[in-house]
Design a protein around this nucleic acid. Structure first.
Lengths: 187, 187
DNA sequence: ATATTTTCTAAACGTTCGTTTAGTTATTGT
DNA sequence: ACAATAACTAAACGAACGTTTAGAAAATAT
């Protein structure tokens, strides 16, 4: 046998995620990753194959980090109010540690929207579809709404959430709170 | 005297703008610009100094292209309805020629939000402030609204517009129309 | 027609990118 | 203790980036 790794993969991948989250895929260089992860290129490549592989692991890491957020959202029993809660909690997460970096998935969605990366794009679509489906379920708890209005409101809320994620990178807490309150005034 | 330029600057800068608009600043390389503009690097540098200078000219070009849109918006006399009109026309512009490329200013705003480019960031802020101010004026035509509600609605609409610009890059016409209609249901 | 001036072509510049590789160091089983 | 093996360091790889430059081509004033 031989030497063991001097780092824990789940630990360094979280550091990588934070960098990707803040700067996006292209802007984050291997040099920056070396520094932030505290290991050198050889180790990164031997653990994750290449930059793209590391990015995919970072996305996984983000998903597991936000898993409880989604679980709470899904398991809630307060219909529309759960959606609003989810919006507020999402913003709080993206503003953690005083950093304005939005939602990692939304950032990725935007950055890759014009590229032709099947793996990433498929994951992004799945993520968005999943969100939309949960929202639809929540809206359906109000049995007075017909299917047409539910579809319309779901489209509205998914896009509002998308805009919210972008906004949380650049806008003030006050502007964002105004935004969320207004979003739900007509739901 | 000597040879004259074999291209018209305003013409090639519009081609550059289209490329920047579609791909963003970083992703657009000088090589791509050469090809799209139909002139070579020497000519680009002699006309615009550097890539950044060319980008600034592209932003100017976009502003002049959207000037009439803003003029109509500002000069309208239908209050909130003018805002809705503006939203619809903005989406139509960004979908022109079948391309999904959103709003050039919003794209730039997002791409540069984490960078420290004073010139660009100042222009972006000015653009957004201007938009917000016009929206406030439109909202004020409804004299039943107090200042607090106007501020809140203005914040909401600016962010909604921001989200709309992002959405127009990836969402269907139907989803976007649903979105716009819902935005104005509670104004 | 020629000298002058500017544009154009095309190659090269120095950096940085993501990635690979040769060689050293450390840890383990025997 | 020693051989084996994996992880480490650090340098180098080719390609692409934004930018510059030397020389050829073209258009004007005299």
């Amino acid at each position: 046998m031989a030497r063991k790794k001097q780092y824990i993969e789940s630990d360094v991948v979280e550091r990588a995620m934070n960098l990707f989250w803040k700067n996006g895929y292209e802007t984050t260089s291997m040099q920056m990753l070396e520094k932030e992860m505290g290991i050198n290129k050889f180790s990164i490549y031997s653990s994750f194959g290449n930059k793209h592989g590391l990015f995919l692991e970072s996305l996984k890491c983000y998903k597991s980090k936000t898993k409880s957020l989604f679980e709470d959202f899904k398991n809630g029993s307060n219909g529309v109010h759960d959606i609003k809660d989810f919006f507020y909690k999402s913003v709080a997460l993206s503003l953690k540690e005083g950093n304005h970096k939005g939602c990692f998935v939304t950032n990725t969605f935007n950055e890759f929207s014009e590229k032709e990366d099947e793996i990433i794009n498929e994951q992004m679509s799945a993520f968005m579809d999943n969100l939309k489906q949960i929202i639809i379920e929540k809206l359906k708890t109000d049995t007075t709404k017909d299917e047409a209005i539910i579809t319309k409101q779901a489209n509205y809320l998914v896009l509002a959430k998308h805009g919210l994620a972008a906004a949380s990178r650049v806008n003030t807490k006050e502007e964002i709170d105004d935004y969320i309150e207004m979003i739900f005034d007509n739901i």
